[in-house]
Design a protein around this nucleic acid. Structure first.
Length: 387
DNA sequence: AGCGGAATCA
DNA sequence: TGATTCCGCT
């Protein structure tokens, strides 16, 4: 029998977890594993799939298939042989107020994680860092993960988040996207398009990768990953509250809705296109997102009944042919061809069959100077290390 | 089954 | 603080 211990920190550059994710660091009993963490741990392991598993099609939702067994496992971990589901469920109910979990009403033994509070902040290269992490690329880990961050928790969270983002992107572009699941293997038109979705670009860095001062700067080599000049502010970098000697996570200046929208997730091609407002970039972005997409999807392991949208037919090929995103530079002339852009945009939207909501329509300014107007990087809201 | 108050523990 | 234990209630 062993009693587990939780990591001391959940902080990672470019990623702000919900408040609850930091509790392990702040509480005196933090060295003891927490129940939500244990649940995630079980959910991640294939051997416990018959005991507890993600609910298919519902992001963050899981079903305890064998309550007694889960309670027994939890009791074993905490050295509490008298543990039972009644007690375990009481502990789970304490998470309701903390917004860590909530109950799925009407479904027995079904709960849902509030992963929606997971916040990705704009951070150059974050997409690649995520991928590196998801890939288990040890070569990058030293630079990617601060000591103390437990990779499994982060991977699990990222994967869940990514899967959700993929799914939502797929849904938005393909009205019957979920049908694709059952059509796996058949090369339907929908499937073909689904493969082109920018699946792993959920953090948006493919679109804003190194976008500073209204100009694109993508890394040409992997060494740029750790180049300080690629950080949001030259000479300054994102840092943990501890490093910055600032108040705790709950008092962090979090993203505004602006950065939230651009930095979080769930940007369809349509939205990216709007953000960029730059037809000339589109094809090159697609190249970039396509390769990222393949790379990202291939990293998704079969995790219980998690909603995995599209299989990777070219996974092996992608593994061997993946290149870091290309350097993309806006064509200055095209920034001012507003009328032409408008008709191209129209064609583009028609082609991908995405209805454009009125609230997201272009404004005049973005037509005239799309890249400048979009300003996806709102660095003033970042947590900055004092210079 | 699920909820939440209360006391208690580590 | 984050459970654990107990229990009455719906």
């Amino acid at each position: 029998m062993h009693c587990g211990y939780a990591p001391s920190s959940y902080w990672i550059p470019g990623l702000a977890f919900p408040d609850w994710a930091y509790k392990a660091e702040s509480s005196p009993g933090s060295r003891q594993i927490q129940l939500w963490h244990f649940i995630l741990e079980l959910l991640q392991k294939e051997e416990f799939r018959h005991v507890i598993a993600w609910q298919q099609g519902e992001y963050g939702e899981f079903v305890i298939k064998d309550p007694d067994e889960v309670a027994r496992l939890w009791g074993r971990r905490k050295c509490k042989p008298q543990m039972n589901y009644d007690k375990l469920s009481r502990a789970l109910r304490y998470y309701y107020n903390k917004k860590i979990l909530h109950k799925t009403k009407g479904k027995r033994f079904t709960y849902k994680f509030n992963f929606s509070k997971l916040i990705f902040v704009n951070y150059p290269m974050w997409d690649m860092r995520c991928q590196s992490l998801l890939l288990g690329n040890n070569r990058c880990h030293a630079a990617v993960l601060p000591s103390g961050v437990q990779r499994e928790v982060l991977q699990n969270t990222l994967l869940a988040h990514k899967l959700f983002a993929d799914q939502m992107t797929c849904r938005r572009l393909l009205p019957n996207a979920m049908d694709y699941h059952s059509n796996a293997g058949k090369k339907t038109p929908g499937a073909a398009r689904c493969n082109l979705l920018p699946a792993s670009c959920f953090s948006g860095s493919c679109c804003y990768l190194g976008l500073r001062n209204g100009r694109f700067h993508a890394p040409s080599t992997s060494t740029d990953l750790h180049n300080p000049s690629m950080a949001p502010h030259a000479g300054r970098s994102l840092c943990s509250p501890t490093q910055a000697n600032l108040p705790g996570p709950t008092e962090w200046p979090l993203c505004t809705s602006h950065t939230f929208h651009h930095g979080l997730t769930l940007m369809s091609l349509e939205e990216r296109f709007q953000t960029l407002g730059h037809r000339g970039l589109h094809d090159r972005l697609m190249e970039c997102t396509y390769s990222n997409s393949l790379l990202g999807q291939q990293t998704v392991p079969p995790m219980g009944n998690q909603p995995i949208i599209s299989p990777i037919l070219e996974a092996q090929e992608a593994r061997s042919t993946y290149q870091p995103p290309l350097i993309v530079k806006p064509d200055p002339e095209s920034q001012y061809k507003s009328l032409e852009e408008d008709s191209k945009l129209k064609n583009f939207k028609e082609n991908i069959k995405v209805p454009l909501s009125p609230s997201k329509m272009y404004n005049v300014q973005s037509k005239l100077c799309p890249v400048e107007a979009a300003q996806p990087f709102n660095t003033k809201n970042w947590l900055l290390k004092p210079a």
